[in-house]
Design a protein around this nucleic acid. Structure first.
Lengths: 113, 113
DNA sequence: CTTGCATTTAACCGAGTGGTTATTTAACTT
DNA sequence: AAGTTAAATAACCACTCGGTTAAATGCAAG
C-alpha cells in the first residue's frame, strides 16, 4: 500500500497534526494556518504540500489566496489499516491468553511443572 | 502527544509494517524476521529498535536469541487519534453538507443567487 | 503597467534515516 | 578456554526532512 506511507509519514509530524486540528474547525488560508505557529510561511507551505500529497487536504485557489480544506477519506485508509491490525493482534493475544490458561489447568491436573 | 510521533513514523515505513504483519502471525526471532527481506540483518535490527521505541513491539532475550512480540496497546493510541479526528472531520462535512442544502432551499424560496 | 499582497519555489544548512560492511558483545557448545 | 551462533553497535554514505532567507510567481487594484 503506497498511500499509507504518505499518510502515516504526514501524521508523524506534530506541526502537521496541529494544522489538521486547526482545519477540523473549518477551512483556512495558508496565512491563517501559519499564524499560530512560530515557523516561517515557506515551512508551513511545505507542510501543506506534504498533507496534500497524502490526500489529507486539498488546496483551492480563491483570489490570491489558497484555501485549505480537509479530506476525511484519506484518514479512512490509515484507520482501516490500524483497525485491521489491531483486531489481528488482539486475536493473537486472546489465543495466547487462552493457551496460557490451558497450560495452567493441565499443570493442576497432573501435578508436574 | 509525544508518542504519536514515534508510532506514526514507525508505521510510515513499509518494511516495518511488513515486520508487524509477520509478527501478527506469531512471535519471531530477529533472524527469522530478517529472512524474508532482502536487507541486511543490521538494517532489520534497527527497524526493530524503531518499532520498540514506538512501543509497537517488545524484544525479549531467550538464550542467544531475541524474540520479538507485538504490543497491541501501542496501536490503540494511534487508532484513537485517527478515529477521534475522523469523527470531527466528518461532523464538519455533515454540517457543511446541511448548510449547502439549506442554501439550495433558500435559493428556491426567494429566487436570488 | 506598476504596486502590493499571498503563496510558492530556490538554494542552502544541520539533523535524521535507511542502507551498507566490519567489528563487538553475549550466550551456548565443545 | 576456544569456537560458534545471534544480534547489536560502529563507522560510513547517500538521501530526505524541516527549517531558514531570498527570489519568483499569481492575482487584484490603483
Amino acid at each position: 500500500m503506497e498511500r499509507l506511507d504518505h499518510t502515516f509519514a504526514a501524521l508523524a509530524d506534530p506541526t502537521r497534526r496541529a494544522i489538521l486540528a486547526r482545519l477540523a474547525l473549518g477551512e483556512a488560508t495558508v496565512g491563517e494556518l501559519a499564524e499560530p505557529f512560530e515557523v516561517s510561511l515557506p515551512a508551513i507551505s511545505r507542510h501543506l504540500k506534504v498533507l496534500e500529497t497524502a490526500d489529507l487536504i486539498v488546496r483551492e485557489k480563491r483570489a490570491q489566496q489558497r484555501v485549505c480544506r480537509l479530506r476525511p477519506e484519506a484518514l479512512k485508509t490509515a484507520s482501516e489499516w490500524i483497525e485491521q491490525n489491531r483486531r489481528m493482534w488482539e486475536e493473537r493475544f486472546d489465543r495466547l491468553d487462552a493457551y496460557l490458561r490451558e497450560l495452567q489447568g493441565k499443570e493442576n491436573d497432573d501435578g508436574n511443572g
